[in-house]
Amino acid sequence: MHKNIYSDIRRATCMRLSEIVPSILPQGRRMGREWVALNPTRSDRSLGSFRINLTSGAWADFATGDNGGDLVSLASYLYGMSQYEAALYVSRIAGVANDR
């Protein structure tokens, strides 16, 4: 994958984070600029510790210390994908052409 595709994906997803994040983490709610959700990678029963910033895409699970800086790293974490596979997945969600 061409290096610039990561920049394209980040730019395209940042404009649509408030739409995309709830679609991949439906068990959550908006709290200010963040999406607070249940972490599907562990037995998470209450909202609070797993948060995604809807402006930057940065995310963290404050219960485990896991974190990342964008939607690609979030997809990689949630679905156990490589960064490359996650970038392809996110590019499809965001409608970013990945023919480079």
Results as ranks from 00 to 15, higher is better:
residue 57 G to P: 00
residue 18 S to L: 03
residue 36 V to A: 03
residue 11 R to I: 11
residue 34 E to V: 08
residue 1 M to S: 13
residue 63 A to V: 00
residue 90 V to R: 00
residue 65 G to Y: 09
residue 26 P to L: 08
residue 42 R to Y: 03
residue 49 S to G: 03
residue 10 R to S: 12
residue 8 D to Y: 14
residue 49 S to Q: 06
residue 99 D to A: 14
residue 20 I to M: 08
residue 12 A to N: 12
residue 59 W to E: 02
residue 48 G to I: 00
residue 99 D to M: 14
residue 16 R to F: 02
residue 12 A to F: 11
residue 19 E to N: 06
residue 1 M to E: 09
residue 41 T to K: 12
residue 98 N to Q: 13
residue 21 V to P: 07
residue 86 A to W: 01
residue 96 V to A: 12
residue 86 A to F: 02
residue 37 A to F: 05
residue 75 A to I: 08
residue 85 E to V: 05
residue 72 V to A: 12
residue 6 Y to L: 15
residue 78 L to D: 00
residue 77 Y to P: 09
residue 79 Y to Q: 13
residue 43 S to N: 14
residue 3 K to V: 11
residue 30 R to V: 14
residue 12 A to E: 12
residue 21 V to F: 05
residue 58 A to F: 06
residue 34 E to I: 01
residue 82 S to D: 08
residue 28 G to C: 01
residue 47 L to H: 04
residue 11 R to W: 11
residue 43 S to F: 12
residue 100 R to S: 13
residue 27 Q to T: 10
residue 65 G to D: 11
residue 84 Y to H: 09
residue 76 S to K: 03
residue 2 H to C: 12
residue 63 A to L: 07
residue 77 Y to E: 04
residue 70 D to N: 15
residue 96 V to G: 10
residue 82 S to A: 05
residue 21 V to H: 04
residue 68 G to P: 07
residue 87 A to H: 05
residue 12 A to I: 13
residue 49 S to A: 14
residue 23 S to L: 13
residue 4 N to Q: 13
residue 15 M to P: 01
residue 3 K to G: 03
residue 93 I to Y: 00
residue 53 N to R: 04
residue 44 D to R: 01
residue 47 L to M: 11
residue 8 D to C: 09
residue 97 A to S: 12
residue 91 S to T: 08
residue 58 A to N: 06
residue 42 R to L: 10
residue 17 L to H: 06
residue 94 A to E: 07
residue 30 R to A: 10
residue 95 G to T: 03
residue 94 A to I: 13
residue 86 A to P: 07
residue 43 S to Y: 12
residue 25 L to Q: 02
residue 26 P to K: 05
residue 33 R to K: 14
residue 54 L to Y: 05
residue 75 A to C: 13
residue 29 R to P: 04
residue 30 R to E: 15
residue 76 S to N: 07
residue 30 R to W: 02
residue 7 S to L: 15
residue 9 I to Y: 08
residue 19 E to S: 11
residue 49 S to D: 10
residue 4 N to P: 04
residue 22 P to M: 09
residue 52 I to F: 03
residue 17 L to S: 07
residue 75 A to Y: 01
residue 40 P to A: 06
residue 72 V to D: 10
residue 68 G to H: 10
residue 19 E to Q: 14
residue 46 S to Y: 02
residue 58 A to L: 05
residue 84 Y to R: 11
residue 75 A to P: 00
residue 45 R to F: 14
residue 4 N to T: 14
residue 77 Y to M: 09
residue 100 R to T: 13
residue 35 W to K: 06
residue 39 N to Q: 08
residue 37 A to G: 05
residue 49 S to P: 11
residue 56 S to W: 08
residue 79 Y to D: 11
residue 12 A to Y: 04
residue 60 A to I: 06
residue 91 S to A: 15
residue 55 T to E: 14
residue 96 V to Q: 07
residue 37 A to D: 01
residue 32 G to L: 10
residue 20 I to A: 05
residue 23 S to I: 07
residue 56 S to E: 00
residue 95 G to M: 08
residue 35 W to V: 09
residue 6 Y to M: 13
residue 91 S to H: 06
residue 66 D to G: 02
residue 16 R to K: 15
residue 57 G to Y: 04
residue 5 I to W: 13
residue 96 V to F: 12
residue 52 I to S: 00
residue 47 L to K: 00
residue 22 P to G: 12
residue 54 L to I: 09
residue 19 E to W: 05
residue 95 G to H: 01
residue 47 L to R: 00
residue 5 I to F: 10
residue 91 S to N: 09
residue 69 G to L: 10
residue 22 P to T: 07
residue 79 Y to T: 01
residue 2 H to D: 15
residue 21 V to A: 07
residue 78 L to W: 06
residue 25 L to Y: 04
